Amino acid sequence: MKKKIFNGLLQILGIMIVGAIIGYSVGKIVGDSLSKVDTPNSILLLIAGVLAFILHIIVHEAGHLFFGLLSGYKFISFRVFDFKIIKDENGKLKIRFERLAGTGGQCLMRAPEYVEGKFKYKLYLLGGVTFNIVFSVVFWLVLPSYYTLLFALIGFVLAFLNLIPMGFNDGMTFYHASKDETTRFILHLQLEYIYYQSIGKNLLIEKPEIVEKINSLEITNTNYLTDALEFIKLDGLEYFFEFDALYNEVRKLYTERDDLLSVYKVELMALLVKLISLVNPEDELLEEIMKDKSLKVRLKQKNPQTKNILATYEYGVKLDDEKALNLINEARKIKNKAPNLYIQNLEMKYCDYLENNIIK
């Protein structure tokens, strides 16, 4: 805990120093230009700031897309806030809605075939930051004004916040990937896994040799990229509805790994609500996690995964079959709000499973 606090303070100090340098530099560079333009309306400037922030998120993700394509990657999805464009199994673009805590956007792509020592990840990971900086400079040089200055400042701030390694941003992912080949392979594996989910398939089922490869990995630098392997393994159990084994593994991971990212912990808690309700409703851990504020927020999400979690809770813990069935029907109605085709299909399959358990 002390280490996390210390690292957090260092990050804040680093951001303040960078901000001061940027502010001083900008003042020196643009001072003369701004003296020649009219002072803007404060309300318009505020609106421009909001629009600039949204535009820079789009620009940032477009940077990942551009440099990903340049590196031989293939498009999977492009998300800004909750709005998401995906390419389905037939190559057609579709709109879905997905919320991922801690991110304003995300561009996911399928990496080229993995070749040890030659994995192209640098341009893809740094593409967003590069676009933020380039577009900021270009807009200011082409049309210097208070509005383009605001656009540029927001762009530089977002760029540095993503470049300085912290949380699970681009800089941190780049930092971990640059440290060793195993982490780079795992990054590639994650992107491949996401691609298969986008076309409604499970990578471990389609390519069972990957399981052996995962089990043979020697992980020396544990981080959120390597932690994602745990979720890939859990997904294999969920695919076959091996809920007893899944319950044991998820409970063990949750109770033994305090160092997991908060977003991982929240997803584990959400999964535990479902599994405890289904397998062992008397587990005292359920009452503990249901008090967690982050979980309460997570369980307000309107997607089929959440509806099924709540339906299982009503069925297994509250013993309210009618409410459980209503939640199952709600899950079916919003199936298109699942983040990808694989999860959509899996949740619809679970709807049938739970419904059969209730009415039998």
Results as ranks from 00 to 15, higher is better:
10 L>C: 11
12 I>E: 06
13 L>M: 10
14 G>F: 05
16 M>H: 10
17 I>F: 14
17 I>S: 12
19 G>A: 15
19 G>T: 13
20 A>P: 05
21 I>Q: 10
22 I>T: 13
22 I>A: 14
22 I>M: 15
23 G>W: 10
23 G>I: 08
24 Y>P: 08
24 Y>E: 14
24 Y>R: 15
24 Y>T: 15
25 S>C: 15
28 K>D: 12
28 K>H: 12
30 V>Y: 11
31 G>I: 06
31 G>D: 12
32 D>H: 14
33 S>K: 10
34 L>E: 05
36 K>P: 05
37 V>Q: 00
38 D>N: 13
40 P>G: 05
41 N>S: 13
41 N>D: 15
42 S>G: 09
42 S>K: 13
43 I>C: 08
44 L>W: 09
45 L>I: 08
46 L>P: 03
50 V>I: 15
51 L>V: 13
52 A>Y: 07
53 F>W: 09
54 I>Y: 09
56 H>G: 05
56 H>S: 06
56 H>F: 11
57 I>W: 05
57 I>C: 04
58 I>N: 02
60 H>D: 02
61 E>H: 01
63 G>I: 02
63 G>P: 05
64 H>V: 04
65 L>N: 06
65 L>D: 07
66 F>Q: 02
66 F>H: 03
67 F>I: 00
68 G>Y: 00
68 G>A: 00
72 G>H: 00
72 G>R: 00
73 Y>H: 01
74 K>C: 05
78 F>I: 00
79 R>W: 03
80 V>G: 04
83 F>T: 04
86 I>K: 02
86 I>F: 01
91 G>Y: 01
91 G>C: 02
92 K>W: 03
92 K>Q: 06
92 K>N: 06
93 L>I: 01
94 K>F: 01
94 K>A: 01
95 I>D: 01
97 F>G: 01
100 L>I: 14
101 A>H: 12
101 A>L: 10
101 A>T: 11
103 T>R: 13
104 G>F: 15
104 G>T: 09
105 G>P: 05
106 Q>K: 11
107 C>G: 07
107 C>E: 08
107 C>K: 06
109 M>Q: 14
109 M>Y: 09
109 M>F: 12
109 M>R: 10
110 R>P: 12
110 R>S: 10
111 A>E: 06
114 Y>V: 07
114 Y>P: 09
